[in-house]
Each structure stands twice: as structure tokens, then as C-alpha cells.
Amino acid sequence: MLCYILAFYSYVGELPGFEYQITGYLPSAVFGLWAGLSTLFVGKYLNKLVSWKQRHGIRFLIQCTALYLIGLVLIAIYSEMFLISLRGDLSYSQFWLIYNDEIFKTLLILFLVVLVYCIIDFMIYSFNQMREEEIKSVELMNNQLNLQFEALKSQLNPHFLFNSLNTISSLLYKDKEVAEKFIRMFAESYRFIFKQNNRPLIPLQKELDFVQSYNYLLQVRFQEAYELKINIPDKAMESYVPPLSIQMLVENAIKHNLISQTSPLSVDIEINNNYLCVKNNINPLREQPESFQIGIENIKKRYSYFTNDSILLDKNEHFKVSLPLILQS
């Protein structure tokens, strides 16, 4: 419509009046609507073909070129209608001679409008993308905290606490020095749980230190019927794990197996092909606790936030869970 007013004023010397509303304003409004719909169509089509997320530069160039070509087509059609409605006796050469300045201005205005629109479109995309990333980041953090809270609850179960207190009670009458160390390790384990559980990842060395403290409680409780072996090279200590992940696997081995002098339980922690493996022999209980799959799923979900590698399960002669090493925090 602005192009129509500009061309009319250049030719006649005054603004178009009411009598030109149908012949001038209405076609201009229709062509403006076509231009808007064409712009939306091009944007949706390019989102499927070359989205802003894939290649910013190529998308910007293609969108500018496509919109400019569409604008040229609409201007050519509009110019033909304008030529017929304003002065039907004008030839194309006469129309060019009279309106060449307006045509150049219109093409320049079209270029600037297309350029500004593409810049604004990219800015809107960038803002929406940033907002989506912030929302995903908050959701990710909330999911991690929920999973770690579930892991924390599993470590604070009354059954383990009751058994530990019973062990302390019996040790106080048998060996006060062992009882004192047991209480110290018991307190150290729970201090680690509360201190580290709010972190998404911790160094493998810290997790193994906690497992050693937790293991002392198990050794006092089961004596020779239980054994833990840790064989981890120093280089692997630079990797990271979700807190309580290894301890949960050791605890699962305790929960789901019969432990006695005649059926001892042995748990091995080692490195194999960039995986940390927790392996134990199988002495199954008659009734398996329901918490096994819950614990494994908790570990899987927490690992999925940091690596695409899957957690591997193997149950043949031994039950083995392999956790992928996370090399960066």
C-alpha cells in the first residue's frame, strides 16, 4: 500500500483520494496479505528444509533470497495492475521511463524490509531457543535432584539403620575399640551421604572412599562371610560417577543374596574396557526384595544425563553391572 501511495504521488502530485480506494487501496491490501502469507509459508517450509538450528548462515541467505524473489513477483504483478488502473494508455517502456526512480526505490525498500524481517526472525528464534534451553536446564536439574533424593531415601532405609544399631549394641559388650571404629565409620558414611548427594557427579576416588567406609560396616556385620575387592588403576580415579551409584550396587548385592559361612558373598569392583564393573557371585534369596529394579533404574536415569553409553547388565555365573566411565565433570 505504501508503494501505491508513493507511485501515485510521484505521478499525480497529490495523495490518492477516496475515489481510488477500490482501485488502489484494496489491491494493495490484497497484495500485502499475499506477501504476509507467502512469508509465513516460506518460514515454515525452510524450518523443515534448513532450520535456524542447523545452519544459521545458509538459512539466513536462503530466506532473504526467497522472500526477495517473491517480493519481486508480487511487485511485477502489482505494477501491471497499477498500470491498467491508473493510465491504461501507457506502454511498458513509458511506464519504466516515468516510474524508474520509484521502481528503484521500491526494490531498495523491499531489500531493506526483507533484511530487517530476516534479522528479527532470527532474533525471535534465538530468544525462543534460549528460553527453551533454560526451561530444559531447570527441568534437568529438577529431575536430577528427584533421582538423587530417591537414592538418598534408599540409603536411609530403617532396615540398614536397625541392623547397624544392633551391631553397635553387641560390639559394646564384646570389643569397645571395634565398636568405637564402627560408630565412627557409621557416622562418616552418613555424613558423606548428606554432603555429596546434592551434587550430580563426584570424583570416583571420593565414591570409593565412601564405599570403603560402608564396607567396614558390612565386614563387621558379616565377618568372613563377606568380602569386597577393589582393583581400580590410578588413571581411572580421574573419572566421575553419580554419588551413591557404586554403593547402591554393593548394597544390592547384600540385599539380594544369602550371606553365611557356608555361602559367602564376594563383590569385585574393577575396570574393563572403559567400564567400571561391580560383580558378585550369586546366592539368591528365596524371596527377592522389590527394590532391585528401582535401584538399577535410578542409576540408569542419572547416568543418562551425562553419557549416551548404556549401563550393561550380565547375569551368568556372576551378576555384573558395568557403569560407563565419565571422564569429565
Rank of each mutant, 00 (worst) to 15 (best):
D234Q: 15
I254P: 00
E180N: 14
L244A: 05
E180V: 14
H256A: 11
M185A: 15
A225M: 02
I230S: 03
P158E: 15
A253W: 00
E188G: 05
N215T: 06
L217Y: 05
I232C: 07
P233R: 07
N198K: 14
Y216P: 06
H159N: 10
Q205H: 15
Y173S: 08
M237K: 14
K181R: 14
F162E: 05
I183K: 01
L171S: 01
N166T: 14
R221G: 05
N163E: 08
Y214Q: 04
E177Q: 15
L171A: 04
L208V: 09
A236P: 02
M248Q: 12
K255G: 13
S164A: 15
Y216G: 10
R199T: 09
S239L: 06
L204F: 08
L156R: 10
K181W: 11
R221N: 12
E238P: 06
N157F: 07
R199M: 10
L161M: 14
E177M: 10
F162S: 05
L204Y: 02
S170D: 08
F192K: 01
P243R: 01
S164Y: 07
L208N: 02
Q212M: 07
S245K: 01
K181N: 13
A236Q: 04
S170P: 04
S245C: 11
I168W: 01
P243H: 04
L201E: 03
I168P: 00
A236V: 02
R199A: 08
K255C: 15
S213P: 02
Y216K: 09
R191F: 06
I230G: 02
N166P: 09
E227M: 13
S189I: 11
L217E: 06
E207V: 00
L244G: 01
L171Q: 00
D175W: 01
N157L: 09
I193D: 05
K195L: 11
E251Q: 10
A236H: 02
Y173N: 11
P243G: 00
K176F: 14
Y216V: 08
H159Q: 12
L171G: 00
S213N: 12
P203V: 08
N198A: 12
M237F: 11
N157I: 06
Q205D: 14
A187W: 09
L249E: 01
S213M: 04
L171I: 07
Y190K: 05
N166M: 06
L228F: 07
N157H: 12
H159W: 03
E207N: 02
Y240D: 04
P200L: 07
L161H: 12
K176P: 01
D209R: 06
Y190F: 12
